[in-house]
Simulated scan of single mutants.
Amino acid sequence: MSPVRRFAAGAVLAAVAILATAAPATAHDQLLESSPAEGERLDAPPGSVTMTFSGELLVLDESTAGAVVLVVDADGEDWATGDVEVRGRNVTAALTPDMPEGGYQVRWQVVSEDGHPIAGVIPFAIGDAAPLESTGSAEATASAVPDAPTASDQNADGTGGPTRILLVGGAGAALAVVVFAVLLVLRRRRAAAVPPDSGDDMAENS
């Protein structure tokens, strides 16, 4: 294989490597577990809501963690109090003491490790009441959380991920093609600079 072809093949392999390594970075984090759990019925009011995710969540700055947690009842009253605490993969939100029996929803939004916001809803209940399930669309249920994806796709939303992968891979492939073309032109110019009968002249002179 000529040096030009070897270089072009290496450039293409590099583009493939970029494409392969870009894929895992675009995956959004997922909610692994929570307390209260989805659909759980508690005998007593919880003191806080805790959630654990699959990756390290982003903290935007010291004044805001980039996370929103609301705990609402059927009337829409929010029982979460204080700041939301984000530590690595864990999120904690304190609740107002003496929450009455009834159905509730935890409406949450956090910033995934890849910088993309993800959101969801966790229904639970205190006492003999039923967990507060969504009565309308998923978009309406999560509407209290700003700029949140729907609850139904919080673990599957990949908007922008495949596009970014294709852009990265396409850029690498395009770079390989350009490099190959430039080297090919240079090779042809170098070949054209050598007279075609130079070999015969050398033989005669010898």
Rank of each mutant, 00 (worst) to 15 (best):
residue 94 A to D: 14
residue 76 G to Q: 05
residue 127 G to H: 01
residue 97 P to W: 10
residue 78 D to P: 10
residue 30 Q to G: 01
residue 93 A to R: 15
residue 48 S to N: 13
residue 81 T to D: 14
residue 152 S to G: 00
residue 3 P to F: 13
residue 8 A to K: 07
residue 12 V to K: 10
residue 56 E to I: 11
residue 166 L to T: 08
residue 54 S to C: 15
residue 28 H to K: 09
residue 191 A to L: 03
residue 28 H to A: 14
residue 79 W to P: 01
residue 71 V to S: 08
residue 87 R to A: 15
residue 140 A to I: 03
residue 64 T to E: 07
residue 43 D to E: 15
residue 143 S to Y: 05
residue 181 A to G: 10
residue 187 R to G: 08
residue 64 T to W: 15
residue 14 A to F: 15
residue 36 P to K: 11
residue 26 T to P: 06
residue 97 P to M: 09
residue 51 M to C: 02
residue 116 H to V: 02
residue 97 P to Q: 08
residue 47 G to M: 07
residue 202 M to E: 14
residue 14 A to I: 07
residue 41 R to Q: 10
residue 74 A to M: 12
residue 192 A to V: 04
residue 9 A to Y: 11
residue 149 P to S: 07
residue 58 L to G: 02
residue 41 R to P: 03
residue 32 L to R: 09
residue 99 M to F: 04
residue 48 S to G: 03
residue 49 V to I: 06
residue 32 L to M: 07
residue 178 V to E: 01
residue 176 A to T: 06
residue 183 L to I: 00
residue 146 P to F: 09
residue 97 P to C: 05
residue 190 R to Y: 03
residue 141 T to H: 01
residue 90 N to I: 06
residue 3 P to R: 15
residue 101 E to Q: 12
residue 155 N to G: 14
residue 151 A to M: 02
residue 173 A to N: 03
residue 64 T to Q: 03
residue 50 T to E: 09
residue 98 D to G: 06
residue 137 S to R: 02
residue 2 S to W: 08
residue 168 V to H: 12
residue 64 T to P: 00
residue 151 A to E: 05
residue 124 F to V: 04
residue 128 D to P: 05
residue 169 G to A: 12
residue 113 E to D: 11
residue 22 A to R: 09
residue 78 D to E: 11
residue 82 G to I: 07
residue 65 A to M: 09
residue 206 S to N: 10
residue 96 T to Q: 10
residue 25 A to G: 03
residue 3 P to Y: 15
residue 36 P to D: 08
residue 136 G to T: 12
residue 8 A to F: 14
residue 190 R to P: 01
residue 28 H to Y: 06
residue 107 R to P: 00
residue 10 G to D: 11
residue 105 Q to D: 13
residue 135 T to L: 13
residue 83 D to V: 10
residue 173 A to W: 13
residue 188 R to A: 06
residue 118 I to N: 14
residue 70 L to M: 14
residue 26 T to F: 15
residue 182 V to D: 07
residue 92 T to C: 04
residue 91 V to C: 06
residue 71 V to H: 10
residue 88 G to H: 15
residue 174 A to M: 08
residue 96 T to P: 02
residue 99 M to I: 10
residue 57 L to P: 03
